[in-house]
Nucleic acid binder design. Sequence first.
DNA 1: ATGTCC
Length: 480
Amino acid sequence: MALKIEKIDDCRWRIIKEGAMRTEGLIFASEQLMETLRHEQALEQVRNVATLPGIVGPSIAMPDIHWGYGFPIGGVAAFDPDEGIVSPGGVGYDINCGVRLLRSALNVEEVRPHLKNLADTLFRNVPAGIGSKRRDLKLTIAQERQVLQQGARWAVEHGFGNEEDLRHIEEGGVIPGADPDLISERALERGRAQLGTLGSGNHFLEVQRVDQIGDEKAAEALGLYPGQVTVTIHTGSRGFGYQVCDDYLRLMLRASQKYGIELPDRQLCCAPLSSPEGRQYLAAMACAANFAFANRQLITSWVRESFEQVFGKNAAELRLSVIYDVCHNIAKMETHQVAGRTRRLCVHRKGATRAFPPGHPETPEAYRHVGQPVLIPGDMGRYSYVLVGTQGAFEETFGSTCHGAGRMLSRHAAKKRARGHNIVAELAEQGIIIRAAGRATVAEEIPEAYKDVMDVVNVVQQAGIGKIVARLRPMAVIKG
DNA sequence: ATGTCC
C-alpha cells in the first residue's frame, strides 16, 4: 500500500495516519534528502512502528534514516508504560552502540609528524575486526557479571580512567536495573574476551582535528577550539549485545502471540512494558548497554596509553578528557512533557541520539548552560559533527536527533563501487591514514556509501532539534 | 551490527 506523505515545511514531512496506524509519521528531511527516501522501505517501517500499541506522539524518522531490522535505523518512538510495548527491534542488534569524544591539549601541527606512529600504536593497542578479542583481559564469568551491573564504573574502579570520565557519559555510564541472571550462557561466553575491542562494520577509532566552530559559546563550554586534536570512539556491545538481542527476539515472538499484539512485520515483535517479558528485556538490555559503556571506557584508557607512548608525555600534559559519551541504540524510561502533562515514557532510539536541552538536570554541569553534547560521526573521508541538544528537540522528538550520515549504498553496492579503487591509498593522498583489520570492511565503508553528514546536520539544525557546535576532520582512522 | 548459519 502506497504511503500518503505530505510536506509540512522545508524540513518536515508527515505520513498521514490511516489503516492500522495509531499515530502519524513525522520525517525530518530536506526536499533533496526526501527524494532519496521516497521509495525506501524505511518509510514503510516508520508507518509500521506507528501501529504498535501505546505509542505516544508520532513515529519519528531522522534525516539519516535507512532500512533496519523491523524498526528503521534513524527512528524514535515513545511508549506509554501501561499501554505501550518495548521491542528489541526498536533498539537494534548492537545495543548501546554509541559515540565517545575525547579532547586533547595537542594541536594538529604537534600531531602530524607522529601520525603514522600514532595510527600504528592505536591499531596495536585496540583490537579491531569481527571476532576481535583481548588476550590480556579475558574476564571470568563472575567479573563479567560485575561489568554488566556497573558499566563504565567497573572499568574506572579497575584502574581504567577516572571519576571525571563518568560524569561525562550519558546516565553516568551505567543503566540501572541490569540483571545478569537474565543473560544466556552463550552471551556471557561471547562477551568474555570481547570487552575492550572495537569490532567491525561502521565502528571506528579516529584521530581528528577541529576544523570549524559553529557556536563559540558551546565550543568553549565543551573545551573545543580550531586546530585542536580530538579522538572519537564509535563502538557498542559487540557479540554480547548481538546475542542478547537474538535471545530476546525469540522470547518476544512468543510474547507478541501471548499478549495478542498484531504485528504488520514479525521483526517488530515486542511485549507490553508492564509484562514480565517486557521487564526482562529491559533488564537484559541494560546489561548489554553497560557492557558497551565499559567497552568504550576501556578503549579510552588504551587510547590515552597510546598517546603517552607516542608523544612521550604524561596524562596531565596530554589532557585526553572525555567530552561526552552518548548512546544511539537504546530504549530508556525517561520523563517528558506531552501536551502539558509530565509523563514517564519508554523512548526507543535506534540510530538516534539523545539531545537534551540546556538546563536539563541530566546534562553534565559543565554543559548545562549550552545543552547536552551530541556526537554525529560522518564517513571516514569527510567529517564528523559535534552538536548540542535543544529545547526544540525536547518538545518535538522526545529529546532526540540524528546519529550519523546514513547509508546510501548497501554494503554489497558499496563493495561494487569500490572495485578498482585503492581506498586506503586514495584517502592517504588526502592526508588521512587508514589502519584496518580487513579490506572488505574498508570497501563497505567508502565515503560514497554515505550521505554527506553536513546535509543531515543542516536539516537537524534548521528544524531546531540540534545546534551545530563544531566540525571535525579525520586524520587517522582505525577500522575493523 | 554479528565467532556474517549451531
